[in-house]
Amino acid sequence: MRGGVGLCDVSWLAKIDLKGFGLKAAPSLGPSADCWHLGACHYLATFDPEARGAVLRSIQALTGAAPELDLPPPVYATEVTSVYAALLLAGPKSRHTLRKLTSLNVSESALPDGACGQAGLAHVHTLVLRRDLGGLPAFLLLVGREYAESVWEAIAHAGQEFHLTPFGLEAWRLLSL
């Protein structure tokens, strides 16, 4: 996978959808969570389920506004862990694989580490979240859970040219170090 590209199912990652007029600026959720800007006043938090406690406390601080105390406009948090399947595409050839599937510009300048974009990927609406892994370019691809199997097949097919290999938790842990 280091020479080409690998694909890993990380749908177990926790995801929380944040919306509200109180989100005109990016919320800060602590070091355990990544916060992705999906639209005006719309963010998605992704994090390892083990950090759930800490992340929920940060979110509570945002959403616990009491209108009668004249605090900022409310923020609504919705649990969407089950709504999205998450596929991690990683390796030097991950961009080459992606550009066979989506018209989203995933070049280094257009989508640097930590940036996100939304577009069709294999004809399915996808959230593309760039989060490099162990020095390798890597992309977290979020699709509606019902599409997961179908999109996996499309990515695996496009990645054949680069000898795409599926990888599991062990390899993921090793790369994350």
Partner: peptide
């Protein structure tokens, strides 16, 4: 208006 809509279709 303060209304926010989230699609849960695949999640349930």
């Amino acid at each position: 208006w303060d209304v926010h809509i989230t699609n849960l279709t695949g999640g349930l």
